[in-house]
Design a protein around this nucleic acid. Structure first.
Lengths: 348, 348
DNA sequence: GCAACCTATGAGAGCGCTCTCCCGAGGCTG
DNA sequence: CAGCCTCGGGAGAGCGCTCTCATAGGTTGC
């Protein structure tokens, strides 16, 4: 049925010949045309149009050593990547910033252990100029792969070794997890709640640990039975909430480390006949559109600007790829911690 | 804070020198090592390891004219791309097949009109060997862009012009939308339903039109008031269902063109006090895990194997990139229509 | 009016790789 | 044992582009 044929593309040489100039001049025009007199430049541009010339990216990359492409690496099962709006928002922010600077986004999903090899080869193969890595778990080999590949990297979320191991010089963007958690818990204590539980994220991620630390900052003597570990999914939130209710039926407040987990917790609370916020006040984290506002009751939550964080990650990476980019006064080349703040709705 | 330095990569020349062979031999070993005697090959492999050599992809592409990368182009707002599990499943199928053949997936999202330019340039720039395009709407410029770029393309879902405009020779993978719709509607009539409504997808997509056609095959005299157009989202399903109930309060069956829309319809039916399947029997389309089985009641629906369709798309594209791949007897190089079948659950 | 100086253009090297040729060494046949 | 074939390995061209460097022509200054 199909017999697609694909003629070979015109080369710069062909353009130059048609315009009656040298390849060098044609190249100059194609790349902005600085220092080429108008009549010549016009002839070249016309030749480009007539031939439908598009530069061969491989040849260009070979000499400039730039790809104008950036890898986004996600160490999370595809299922979660596609179902958790967190990633969608972050990728959108990244995507906007990258396309604004004519960079291409290459998505690399890491599912099985075997994928690490493939990703390592890809990063080292010179396909991309830099990497954005997020959802990093402890002992994940990705940072090492990126380092070996020798390409600039920016992390979404503080890597575990960022503080201890200074010379590895991680560049990251994260929100003020600990401060946000403190605000959330303080809000609950302010409401007079006395038995406050915490549903944490997976404790091999710094975001989870930091939020737990914030919780403990306010409640240093909290009963360990009041803390359950989730996995940032609604199901995980359900499981953790059920566990907590079994252990401490008298709890009257819950701080969940994500809105998605809070939504799961909410379902379990309702099933078990607890009113929210009457019996149990509930605070989430993220202020995820499509989640926090749609639950019943809508979630009081700690807002972080996820899309903006994505944008910052991309900007940071682009700057470390080319320090001259957006000149003085711009973003300094260092990690960024964005602020959080409490959004009060009806769940607490 | 950050001062990342990036040493230049070892070249094939360096490997050859270290192994005491010519560049040609080193290249042979790196690419499979056919026709190189074992001791030499081993020396080369050792040199590769010691130097941490990784081939420069740009140089390789320049001469082979292959990228081993394929673009996946989605003409749908990011929001829908990330929230609709349909895409997730399709991309997963594609991703599996591509990685199995050492091909890289490059995701291109098209949101605004401005993005078409960027995507066109990208496809024409020789970054990728082929393109997979899905969620095509009528009059979308993407097919033309891909054609101009001169790269093989496979569509997810039959493009509108595939039947009429033979010489454009579209290669596509689709499910038997019309047949599936017929099965769904026949099931409803078989249950004794007499006022059967249809919530269609956006009618500028062939999948929507085909499903509507299937509906009409069984009910050629259906009241036009019993047909409402949705947009494949839960919200669209809600709106359409509300409309239908306003127009025809006596309807007793609904065939929704997607599970997501069916889930929205279900909410509206419940709100309006209609029991399902008692008052209104409801059939969806897709058999989307995480949707059809989780609604209350679970959806009777038309199953299509979305992941498999993704896999087929990728396989078809890989074959048209390199006809020698997976030798005789394999997939013929022509469009594929996959079967559908009814999955009975409780909603009808 | 001539030296000194620009500035626009061209010539050409080379980025790192693959692949086609070609040569030489060994094994076979007659 | 000569002649032929085979097959492993090397030499080298060139993929399409960018960028440095040299050059030609025009300008300026004294």
């Amino acid at each position: 049925m199909s017999e697609q044929t694909f003629p070979s593309r015109p080369t710069l040489e062909a353009v130059a010949e048609r315009a009656g100039v040298s390849r060098a001049t044609a190249s100059r025009v194609v790349n902005g045309g600085a220092g080429v007199r108008a009549p010549l430049a016009d002839r070249v541009r016309q030749a480009v149009d007539e031939l439908g010339y598009v530069p061969n990216q491989a040849a260009r990359t070979l000499v400039t050593r730039r790809n104008d492409a950036v890898a986004v690496v996600v160490a999370e099962p595809e299922t979660r990547f596609f179902s958790d709006p967190f990633f969608a928002q972050q990728v959108r922010g990244i995507s906007k910033e990258l396309t604004a600077h004519d960079n291409q986004l290459v998505l690399l999903l890491v599912e099985g252990t075997a994928d690490y090899d493939r990703v390592g080869r890809y990063l080292a193969g010179g396909h991309v100029d830099g990497a954005l890595i997020f959802s990093l778990h402890a002992h994940d080999p990705l940072p090492e792969l990126a380092r070996k590949a020798g390409i600039p990297t920016v992390f979404g979320g503080r890597p575990g070794w960022a503080e201890t191991d200074r010379d590895r010089n991680a560049l990251y963007v994260d929100c003020d997890n600990r401060g946000g958690a403190r605000t959330a818990v303080r809000h609950l204590t302010g409401l007079g709640r006395r038995r406050i539980a915490h549903i944490s994220g997976p404790l091999d991620q710094t975001a989870s640990v930091d939020r737990l630390d914030g919780f403990r900052d306010i409640l240093p003597d909290a009963d360990p039975a009041l803390i359950a570990e989730g996995d940032f999914t609604p199901d995980g939130g359900e499981r953790a909430m059920a566990e907590l209710l079994d252990r401490c039926p008298d709890l009257d407040g819950v701080f969940a480390a994500s809105d998605l987990m809070a939504s799961g917790a909410l379902r379990v609370l309702r099933e078990r006949g607890r009113s929210v916020p009457g019996d149990v006040a509930l605070v989430g984290f993220d202020d995820m559109v499509q989640v926090a506002q749609l639950t019943d009751p809508p979630l009081t939550t700690v807002r972080q600007d996820i899309e903006e964080m994505g944008r910052l990650m991309a900007r940071l990476l682009l700057r470390s790829l080319d320090p001259r980019r957006d000149a003085p006064g711009a973003l300094p080349l260092s990690s960024v911690v964005t602020p959080t703040h409490l959004v009060r709705r009806r769940s607490a």
